[in-house]
Design a protein around this nucleic acid. Structure first.
Length: 212
DNA sequence: ACCCAGGGTCATA
DNA sequence: TATGACCATGGG
């Protein structure tokens, strides 16, 4: 069972996922921060609040008061921390000229820049790199660790960079492939059901879905 | 009434 | 380097 085979299996089971769920690169970036340890449905509510108030722009988020931003973010949880994180990011983003300017940065420098923002860790940075800037970076999340650990293809205790290196070495450095692969892993994980520990949709190992 | 969710930071040892 | 506390709403 190779990383290629798992991808083929997931794609056959679920079909293309058309990620990231967001209309613009900026929405993708905000969603990447808001979804930290948070169910996506709650993130959608927070993003809807921002849109309803014409606040889904770097200028508004960077410039508005903390408490007002936090109130819009309330449904996504951790709203005080996330208000600070969104403002940290937007101020960094604007100070460097916004999306067009950042699009010209080499991937390594852009990654370091993203990681320099307080509140942006490796997974958030990589999600932004892959889904907003369309760079070939493999995103490692808890679902990825859990699934491949249970399939016996890697040790879940390995560090983030080590895991990312394994995937990127074993697969072609292809944006479309990395995009689809991560999306399929999340799609597969959301199929999890505690009452039904066997995966009935694809042919992956039994018990590859359940949490814990 | 639990458990979990598409993490990250900070304080300790 | 490696744990643990903390952040917080909402769905199952």
């Amino acid at each position: 069972m190779s990383l290629h085979a798992v991808f083929d299996d997931l794609l056959a089971a679920y079909g293309p996922q058309y990620w990231w769920p967001g209309d613009t690169p900026f929405e993708v970036m905000m969603g990447a921060i808001l979804t930290q340890n948070t169910a996506w449905g709650n993130v959608e509510k927070a993003i809807a609040n921002l849109k309803k108030n014409d606040a889904l722009t770097a200028e508004v988020i960077a410039g508005c008061g903390h408490d007002r931003l936090a109130a819009w973010l309330k449904p996504s949880g951790y709203f005080n921390i996330k208000a600070t994180r969104l403002q940290n990011f937007c101020r960094w983003y604007l100070a460097r000229g916004g999306f067009e300017a950042l699009s010209r940065w080499p991937t390594d420098e852009l990654r370091h820049g993203l990681l320099s923002v307080n509140g942006v860790g490796p997974e958030t940075a990589d999600a932004i790199l892959l889904y907003a800037f369309e760079r070939p970076v493999f995103v490692i999340d808890t679902y990825t660790r859990r699934l491949f650990s249970r399939l016996g293809l890697l040790h879940g205790t390995l560090g983030y960079e080590t895991l990312r290196g394994h995937f990127e070495a074993a697969l072609p450095m292809d944006v479309a492939l990395f995009n689809e692969y991560h999306a399929l892993i999340v799609r597969h994980a959301k199929h999890a059901c505690r009452k039904r520990p066997l995966c009935e949709t694809c042919s992956l190992a039994a018990n590859c879905l359940t949490a814990g």
